[in-house]
Design a protein around this nucleic acid. Sequence first.
DNA 1: TTTACAACCTACCTATCGGTCGGTTAGAAT
DNA 2: ATTCTAACCGACCGATAGGTAGGTTGTAAA
Lengths: 195, 195
Amino acid sequence: MRDAELTRQKILEISADEIHKNGFIATSLSCILARCEVSKGALYHHFKNKMELGYAVFEEIYTPMFLELWQPAVEVEDPIEGLCEFFTAMYEEGSCDEIVCGCPLNNLCQEMSAIDEGFRLRILNMQQQLNQLISLNLQRVASQLRDDIDVSQVAYFIVASFHGSSSLSKSSKNKDLFEKVIKELCSYIRHLRIS
Amino acid sequence: MRDAELTRQKILEISADEIHKNGFIATSLSCILARCEVSKGALYHHFKNKMELGYAVFEEIYTPMFLELWQPAVEVEDPIEGLCEFFTAMYEEGSCDEIVCGCPLNNLCQEMSAIDEGFRLRILNMQQQLNQLISLNLQRVASQLRDDIDVSQVAYFIVASFHGSSSLSKSSKNKDLFEKVIKELCSYIRHLRIS
DNA sequence: TTTACAACCTACCTATCGGTCGGTTAGAAT
DNA sequence: ATTCTAACCGACCGATAGGTAGGTTGTAAA
């Protein structure tokens, strides 16, 4: 057989890239097909329709990518510094294009949550996983933290601020505002410690 | 004359509502026309094309709405408490629909910044105006604040977190996560004070 | 009363979208 | 060598989008 799995994977990866750049709705199948050098028949052989392709991208590309990205940041001895280094590395090392494209999770949340229940539930699930990952690791070092904090609330706030910062950098089209907000986010995170 | 200005205003207001609910691209002119009970010819008499209609909505509806919303929150004697009360009122008084639709500025920033320069510049301008509004008023009470803070950085962070919280509430489809993040945001804002 | 033009109407245009369907082809199994 | 089917192809479809053009109407000014 012609390597079906390779075709499927190529479609998924290029779709993930296109969706990241243009959003789900604005991403046209014809554009994906052109980049993949694959026919429409091939795509519809592997995926029932555009929505199912979107779900597959979310589950098979974005979800593992996300967990692999955040886990090391937070599963170190000191999650406070781990998070700060993670965010700092983002504006120091990330290319401007990457930053301006925003976080795929946040982008899809904004675009699709209200109009498609399948996306909404997948996004909500991812957000809860991410929240638990962060809050469990903050809880782990609770003895070092101020006693007036609610770790789950803090975890949601951190993610929200991060997403807000990537939104800001879209309109400025450079890293400056992103960097500003991330710096303040790090300052906030460090203030969680007993001072 | 048949009241041209009234027609124009009706188109603007209904467009603002539709764009808030569906986003700019997903908002169809035919849908606007149906709600306005106005013909396509009338719309194209008042606006050159869809993009120009979008710009007009941004400038004539969203911009003044935004300034009227944030100004009173921050131009009180105590902007720290002013902001906290403003945010708190948002989840206590705001309808669930309103909250789940998100902030129009953030929505358009996410959707349009990358694909249309006209929108991007208008959004950036609005964000800078908003930042100045907040940072000037924080500066005003600088003597009450910690001396390690950068008011502009703090102002961007506040707006980013607020936008991030509205993004979160979209996927949860209720106010719970919104409320959580807003509470933490208020806690953060109050910690700006010398303790 | 006539004129002139802003204001408005409607039928139509083209482009593009997601999706379908009948047919072809590669290659493993018999 | 033949058969069978997963894998793939591409012309075509209907729906809808934004946009246009030519005609009509209301009304203020001359």
